[in-house]
Deep mutational scan, measured.
Amino acid sequence: SAEDNLGPLPENWEMAYTENGEVYFIDHNTKTTSWLDPRCLNKQQK
């Protein structure tokens, strides 16, 4: 699965689903949400 390739979410991040079944990500560090997987963003920065 995609999660196996990317590994676990960063600390204090949570994956959630909208009512429509779309995946989004919650950053409890900054109390924000994102459509972008933080694991993908980390890979792009390196």
Rank of each mutant, 00 (worst) to 15 (best):
S1K: 15
S1I: 07
S1Y: 07
S1T: 15
S1F: 15
A2S: 13
A2C: 12
A2I: 10
A2K: 15
A2D: 06
A2Y: 10
A2V: 10
E3Y: 12
E3V: 08
E3I: 14
E3D: 12
D4H: 13
D4M: 12
D4R: 10
D4A: 10
D4Y: 04
D4C: 05
D4S: 14
D4E: 13
D4L: 09
N5A: 10
N5S: 14
N5I: 09
N5G: 09
N5V: 10
N5D: 10
N5W: 06
N5F: 13
N5H: 09
L6N: 10
L6V: 09
L6K: 14
L6S: 11
L6Y: 13
L6M: 13
L6I: 09
L6A: 12
L6W: 07
G7P: 10
G7Q: 07
G7A: 09
G7M: 08
G7R: 08
G7W: 06
G7E: 09
G7I: 08
P8H: 07
P8K: 11
P8R: 09
P8W: 04
P8I: 07
P8M: 08
L9M: 11
L9S: 01
L9K: 02
L9F: 07
L9H: 01
L9W: 05
L9I: 09
P10K: 02
P10Q: 03
P10E: 04
P10A: 03
P10G: 04
E11W: 11
E11Q: 11
E11C: 08
E11M: 10
E11H: 14
E11S: 12
N12D: 08
N12S: 08
N12P: 07
N12Q: 10
N12I: 00
N12H: 08
N12L: 07
W13R: 02
W13D: 00
W13L: 05
W13Y: 07
W13S: 04
W13F: 11
W13G: 01
E14N: 07
E14F: 03
E14C: 07
E14H: 06
E14W: 02
E14G: 06
E14M: 05
M15A: 10
M15W: 06
M15R: 10
M15G: 04
M15Y: 05
M15C: 08
M15P: 05
A16R: 07
A16V: 06
A16L: 06
A16K: 07
A16T: 06
A16S: 11
A16Q: 04
A16H: 05
Y17F: 12
Y17K: 15
Y17M: 06
Y17N: 11
Y17I: 11
T18R: 05
T18A: 11
T18L: 08
T18W: 06
T18F: 04
E19A: 13
E19Q: 12
E19I: 10
E19R: 10
E19P: 13
E19W: 06
E19F: 06
E19L: 10
E19H: 11
N20W: 05
N20R: 13
N20Y: 08
N20Q: 12
N20C: 11
N20I: 11
G21K: 15
G21E: 12
G21H: 11
G21D: 10
G21I: 01
G21N: 13
G21P: 01
E22P: 01
E22N: 03
E22F: 03
E22S: 09
E22A: 07
E22C: 07
E22T: 06
E22R: 06
V23K: 15
V23M: 14
V23A: 13
V23Q: 15
V23F: 05
V23G: 09
V23N: 13
Y24K: 02
Y24H: 03
Y24A: 01
Y24R: 01
Y24D: 01
Y24W: 03
Y24E: 01
F25M: 01
F25N: 00
F25E: 02
F25K: 00
F25V: 00
F25H: 01
I26F: 03
I26E: 03
I26D: 01
I26K: 05
I26A: 03
I26H: 02
I26M: 12
I26L: 13
I26C: 06
I26S: 02
I26P: 00
D27F: 00
D27A: 01
D27Q: 04
D27M: 00
D27S: 03
H28M: 05
H28A: 06
H28E: 04
H28T: 06
N29W: 09
N29C: 09
N29S: 11
T30R: 08
T30N: 07
T30A: 08
T30D: 06
T30H: 10
K31Y: 06
K31I: 03
K31H: 04
K31T: 05
K31Q: 10
K31W: 06
K31D: 03
K31L: 08
K31V: 04
T32N: 05
T32D: 04
T32V: 11
T32S: 11
T32C: 12
T32A: 07
T32W: 04
T32R: 05
T33K: 07
T33V: 06
T33I: 03
T33P: 01
T33R: 04
T33N: 04
T33C: 09
S34D: 00
S34T: 14
S34N: 02
S34Y: 00
S34H: 06
S34Q: 05
W35D: 03
W35V: 03
W35S: 04
W35L: 05
W35A: 04
W35T: 04
W35Y: 15
W35K: 04
W35Q: 02
L36Q: 07
L36H: 12
L36P: 00
D37C: 01
D37Q: 03
D37R: 05
D37N: 04
D37L: 02
D37T: 02
D37G: 02
P38S: 00
P38I: 01
P38D: 00
P38F: 00
P38L: 00
P38R: 00
P38H: 00
P38K: 01
P38T: 01
P38V: 01
R39C: 02
R39L: 01
R39Q: 02
R39K: 03
C40A: 12
C40S: 15
C40I: 15
C40K: 15
L41M: 15
L41R: 12
L41F: 15
L41K: 13
N42Y: 15
N42S: 14
N42R: 13
N42Q: 13
K43A: 11
K43E: 14
K43D: 15
K43N: 15
Q44P: 07
Q44H: 07
Q44W: 09
Q45L: 14
Q45W: 07
Q45G: 10
Q45P: 15
K46Y: 08
K46G: 13
K46Q: 04
K46V: 15
K46M: 08
